[in-house]
Structures are given as C-alpha cells and as structure tokens.
Nucleic acid binder design. Structure first.
Length: 356
DNA sequence: TAGGCCATCTGGTCCT
DNA sequence: AGGACCAGATGGCCTA
C-alpha cells in the first residue's frame, strides 16, 4: 500500500510523519484483516499511549529545561507571548497528544457508526449484506419517523403505496429499490417517471387524506442531479381514494407498530435500546417484545401477512389495493407461499398486538 | 475511470 | 489543560 501524505504540520519531523504512516498502515491492515473496526483496539492504543506519555513526561521535563536555558543565553529577550521552541521533547509530546486525539476521534466515530448501525436495524429496511449508506439511513429514518407520527396524528393508516412513497421520499434510486423490495413492491409502481406511463389514472390527486405534505421534505440544494433528492412530494401522494371498507392494507402493520411503540413508551421511561422495528429485512416483522417461544429473529409478518391473507381468500390486500390504486396485478411482486405454521404464527402475532 | 462512500488524520473551537 | 465535537483534507475501495 503506497500512500502519499502531505504533511499538514511543518513542525513534525520526517520521523514523526513516518511514525504516523506506520500507525495508519497498521490500523489499515488491522482493519483489512478483521474486515471490521474493533473499538477495543482503539482503547488499547489509548491506554498504551497514556502509559507512554507518563514515562516520557519525566525525561521531557529535564530536556525542556536544558533547551530553555540554552535559548535564553543565545538570543535577546523578546516581548509578547513566548513562542516555545519545538524541542525534541516537545515534539514528542505533541506527537503523543496528536495520537491520543486520533485514537479518541476514532473511538468517537466508531461510536457514531455503532449508533448508525443501530438505526439501520430499526428502520424498515435492514440488510446485513446490502447496508444502507449513512446518509440514506438518516433520510429513511427521518421519513419513517414522519410517516409513523403522521399515522399517530391522524389516527388513520395509509395504504401500502402511500406508506412506501413516504418512506422513499428523497432517497436515492438504489435505496428506493431496496425499500420497495423489502416491502415486496415493484418500485415501478410508485416511482413517478415510470408509473406515469404505467398508471395514467394514478397521478391526478394530491396527498392522500391520511398523509399531509411532508413538513421536512428533503431539499437538494446544490446536490448533483440524481440519485439524490429528485422526488418531489407531489410525485408520491397520488395513488388512492379512501378505502371503501375502512380497513387498509397496512392495518396489521400499523396496529402492531403502534402497539410496540406504546408498549415501549409505557414500559421504559428511559430509552434503553432500540425500539422494535415493525419491519425488518424483506418486510419481515421483527420484534423483541415477548416473542413467542419459537419465534426466530425475524418473521414473515408485515407484508407477508397481508399476502397470506390474500392467499387465504380474504382479498384484503392486493385484490382490493389493486383496485384502489389502479395497479395491475403484475406490478405486485409474486406472492411467496406460506406454510400453515406461518399462518398460525401470523394469527398469534395479531392476537398479541391486538390484545396489547 | 469517475463518482460515491467511507475511515482516518488534523487543526480549530467550545466546554468543563 | 484536556476532552468533545466539528469540518476539511486525503486516500482507499467499490461499482456503474
């Protein structure tokens, strides 16, 4: 690995810069080996540096005194703040301070990344293999919070399309695809450009009654064209007249989400851990609150539940939704079959959330 | 190969 | 004084 590094601090000797390079390469290679950051390493480095600092300070004081005496003899006294000479000892101390600060900064960033990883896990689209970028995670989280609060505010739940559109507002195309995939929707069904061609009827109306315009719609000042922030809010809320039956496709989802959120509020005065995400990877429902005994980490519930409902002849989701949204059935991704066990589990989950 | 994303270093500023 | 936080700079990796 060759790195050209222009030393920003002229005070550092080549020796110091070499030290820096070694440290960085060591850190890099450690990272490459592990494939992941290890916060403990940073703490060790920090501790080690502190030890070294302690040892060096003693030697340094002597050296410093010597140097200062020499300086006094050689030159006439100047007024103003005394500019300290960069002695070897001082240089050493500077280096140490810098390295300590670097280690702290690394720790800090690792903490930040850990928090971001936690956030990734509680937004509706989590995948270990295809990680959302930091910025997309933040945007999706913002949209998600907004969508949920809008539901709480209005007391009504939107249909699947509106919800996904709200989630995807301002997200990049790949992320939009990912979210759509997680919710088992074909992104073409709600992306403005394509859907215009596909569903001429689906665009005329503004925001659906359940979703007011996004108060913090992401603006893209100065951002380079797509993929970021190209979706205007008017592109999103266009799909549905009010559901004739009152219930919406996402009802199980939202009931569960609200139940979990309320449970969290009621049971934990201080936040200690992530809120249970109503949706996880592939639209699965995952939660940490009293999971059934054989409940695995994530379970097909959210969108799958609705699909299962369709499979059982309830026609509550895509049959009705397709009508409401003027969506051709082929735009909805294929239904994955569910076992009897899964359907039983879905029913149990529903019972849990509706009872709570 | 350009562009996006990321980790790291660095110096400045603010706070305790 | 030292730590936390921040933003800019830099270089590596990956992908379209």
């Amino acid at each position: 690995m060759t790195k050209s590094y222009t030393e920003p601090n002229a005070m550092l000797e080549p020796q110091a810069s070499a030290h820096w390079t070694d440290e960085r390469e060591a850190a890099d290679s450690a990272k490459n080996k592990s494939g992941n950051e290890n916060p403990e390493n940073d703490e060790e480095v920090l501790n080690q540096l502190e030890d070294e600092m302690g040892e060096e300070e003693d030697e340094e004081d002597d050296e410093e005194d010597e140097e200062e005496e020499e300086g006094d003899e050689a030159k006439p006294k100047r007024r103003g703040p005394k500019k300290k000479k960069m002695t070897k000892a001082r240089m050493q101390r500077f280096k140490m301070r810098r390295m300590k600060a670097n280690a702290r900064e690394r720790n800090r960033m690792h903490g930040l990344n850990d928090a971001l990883e936690g956030l990734r896990k509680v937004v509706p689209c989590y995948s270990k293999t295809q990680k959302l970028s930091k910025i997309e995670t933040l945007r999706l989280a913002k949209n998600y919070i907004w969508a949920l609060s809008e539901i709480l505010r209005s007391g009504k739940s939107p249909d699947l399309m509106s919800f996904v559109q709200a989630l995807c507002k301002g997200l990049s195309q790949p992320t939009t695809n990912l979210v759509a995939g997680c919710l088992q929707l074909n992104p073409r069904t709600f992306l403005p450009e394509q859907s215009q061609e596909m569903h001429p009827h689906a665009h005329a109306v503004g925001p659906p009654p359940h979703f007011a315009p996004h108060p913090y719609a992401y603006q893209t000042p100065g951002l380079p064209s797509p993929p970021y922030g190209t979706m205007d809010s008017s592109h999103f809320f266009h799909v549905k007249p009010p559901h004739p039956y009152g219930a919406t496709a996402l009802e199980p989802f939202f009931d569960a989400a609200a139940a979990v959120a309320l449970a969290d509020c009621a049971s934990s005065p201080s936040f200690d851990g992530p809120l249970s995400p109503p949706l996880s990877v592939n639209g699965n429902f995952s939660f940490k609150h009293e999971p059934p005994a054989d409940f695995e980490k994530s379970y097909a519930f959210g969108v799958h539940y609705q699909a299962a409902g369709l499979a059982q002849g309830h026609a509550s989701l895509y049959g009705g939704t397709a009508q409401r949204c003027d969506l051709p059935m082929e735009t909805v991704m294929a239904y994955e079959g569910h076992s009897h066990h899964e359907r039983v589990m879905n029913a149990q989950l529903n019972a849990i959330f509706h009872d709570s």
